[in-house]
């Protein structure tokens, strides 16, 4: 794709600005800011990746992955605002999920420890874990608020905070995992996912592209499950005192 084609395709943003203006949605400014941010961020990342791929350094690769995790943790933590230490819990959970999945993929020989492979794969799993762990903490917070009476009933019967939270933990973890599970169900039928589309556009045979997409699907599912489970288990403790009292 040449630069002119790219500039012309950017004119499509005008459609969304027009709809926003016509329907008085009041999001024209946000669309413009979002578009500019996307251009600046992607250009910046493009150059960074170009440098890292060229340098082919383990240190730079890991630094890039860690930076992705921190930014993802910071973004997802907004959904859990009010929960003490939520940024650390989400960041740890995303890192944990990503580390297990990446290690497994490398050990299974699905990818090699090269920046060209590790960074895009990390981006996909970290992005997915960011959304799911954000959903998990947000739901956890809502459930504790709306089910205070239920939790106190458990505590009054002699349950500890873990036992009293069993049900809300299940709900919160499930909420975080459902978008990934749902998208898995319609994969290839309703949507041709990002990686597969990219490979097909890049000229790879669709059958081969499907193999990669399958790997991406499995790795996203595992990372999501690990991140949601970990963040829920770390966060629920913040709603209780050490004496199993609901705060």
């Amino acid at each position: 794709m040449n630069v002119l084609s790219l500039v012309m395709s950017s004119s499509l943003v005008l459609i969304s600005i027009f709809i926003s203006y016509y329907q008085k949605l009041g999001v024209e400014k946000e669309i413009v800011i979002g578009s500019i941010r996307a251009i600046v961020q992607l250009t910046f990342v493009g150059y960074i990746l170009h440098y890292i791929f060229y340098a082919n350094s383990i240190l730079f690769t890991l630094a890039m992955v860690i930076a992705m995790i921190i930014v993802a943790g910071n973004n997802a933590a907004k959904r859990g605002s009010g929960i003490p230490h939520v940024f650390y819990f989400i960041t740890i959970s995303i890192a944990f999920g990503a580390a297990i999945t990446l290690t497994a993929l490398i050990l299974f020989g699905s990818i090699h420890f090269r920046p060209q492979e590790v960074i895009p794969v990390s981006g996909m799993i970290i992005g997915n874990a960011m959304v799911s762990s954000g959903l998990t903490v947000s739901r956890l917070k809502d459930e504790v608020k709306s089910r205070r009476h239920e939790i106190e009933t458990y505590l009054a019967l002699g349950a500890n905070s873990r036992q009293a939270s069993q049900k809300i933990l299940k709900i919160a973890i499930k909420t975080g995992m459902m978008p990934t599970i749902d998208s898995m169900k319609t994969l290839g039928i309703v949507q041709l996912p990002g990686m597969m589309t990219g490979l097909i556009l890049g000229g790879v045979d669709p059958v081969n592209a499907v193999k990669y997409q399958m790997m991406v699907t499995f790795m996203m599912t595992s990372t999501t499950a690990i991140a949601c489970f970990t963040v829920a288990l770390l966060s629920y403790t913040q709603f209780f005192t050490k004496n199993h009292q609901l705060i």
């Binding site: 505590l155 009054a156 019967l157 002699g158 500890n160 004496n243 199993h244």
Partner: peptide
Amino acid sequence: IIKLRRRIGM
């Protein structure tokens, strides 16, 4: 505390 709550039902 857990034993106490079992002795004092609610």
